[in-house]
Design a protein around this nucleic acid. Structure first.
Lengths: 189, 189
DNA sequence: ACCTGAACACCGTTCAAGT
DNA sequence: ACCTGAACACCGTTCAAGT
């Protein structure tokens, strides 16, 4: 006698994302997710290998959303420098919307986001970087941008910038400096 | 009848740092630390409030060490641009030596490093930033440097750069661009 | 005054038994 | 073929009792 499905993998992941934002990473328990989905904890193991896999799935879904957001934030035409600023602001806004899940992506051991999804999120950045510095330096340029943006937001969310000064201004200062440095680097060798 | 101390807070923190690097954050259990220190798990609560506090102490000790390393890596005299490159390389080398503890510092929720220690680690960066861009922009400049360096190393340790390309080159490219951007920003307004 | 064994709550995970 | 209750291992934490 078949038993009807009372939930789905997508529902579980969505529940995981909600739970993790409201209760933190430690609050992301199998029971909390099961409760939210209307099922008993052992049932989750029919769709997810274990808690670690669930955490990875939450991180992956978050990166997938980020990729879509970045993609629509950077039109392929238009000024490359403005494109860079737009991407950076979009990343920051996204991180503020789901700070816990965002912090999970590059967390020590917790990550495990698949190569493909990470590449998708990098694509818009790589596009802007190519427009700014050309093909040959596009990869290191994209990594410079990504590293700065991720680092800034991570530190901001961790409260590392609470010691005074205008954080918004520091962010704008950073993108501006970065955009200029990359744009100018083309004229050298 | 007094009972002789069989361990100390310093020993516990040192054990925590060793355990976390070899067993990961999940492996940093009260039992593992107690075993390494030669005591039973409940005894740890005489010196540490709970596991979260121990994690925070490990992070704090790590930042304290980093501060010392950065301080000796950046002589206050000499070329500011070379100083910046030296600081960045030192941070990266340090992170590679204790990747798990380093990743803990700005981890979501796990951090909790005290303001003073964080300020001490920032001081050398602030010094170089001041030399590069002057007093008025020193803080945002320092934050730009720190964000980039932290972000780069974090992504590197998380394996986000495994998709090809020369990571060392990307690092050197990043510092170079950053140093130039900051140095040149003085001539504008 | 610190250390210990015993105990409890909570969580991840497995599995036999239901439908 | 998924769902459940029961069960187990493991971990964090408390506490009364030792020395």
């Amino acid at each position: 006698m078949p038993a009807p499905d009372r939930t789905s993998l997508e529902e579980i992941i969505a529940a995981g994302r909600t739970v993790v934002e409201s209760a933190g990473l430690d609050g992301l328990t199998m029971q909390a997710v099961a409760d939210r989905v209307g099922v008993r904890a052992p049932s989750l193991y029919k769709r997810v290998r274990n808690r670690g896999a669930l955490v990875a799935l939450v991180a992956e879904a978050t990166v997938r959303d980020l990729a879509a957001r970045l993609d629509s934030a950077a039109p392929s035409d238009g000024d490359a420098r403005r494109g860079l600023v737009g991407l950076a602001r979009e990343l920051r806004a996204f991180a503020h919307e789901c700070p816990v899940a965002f912090g999970l992506v590059f967390a020590p051991g917790g990550g495990g986001v698949s190569q493909g999804v990470l590449a998708a999120a990098s694509a818009p950045v790589l596009r802007v970087a190519t427009a700014l510095v050309g093909e040959s330096d596009a990869l290191p340029a994209a990594r410079t941008i990504t590293a700065w943006a991720n680092g800034f937001v991570t530190m901001e969310l961790a409260g590392a910038f609470r010691l005074g000064g205008d954080v918004d201004r520091a962010f704008e200062y950073g993108v501006e400096r970065l955009a200029e440095a990359l744009a100018n680097s083309v004229n050298e060798h």
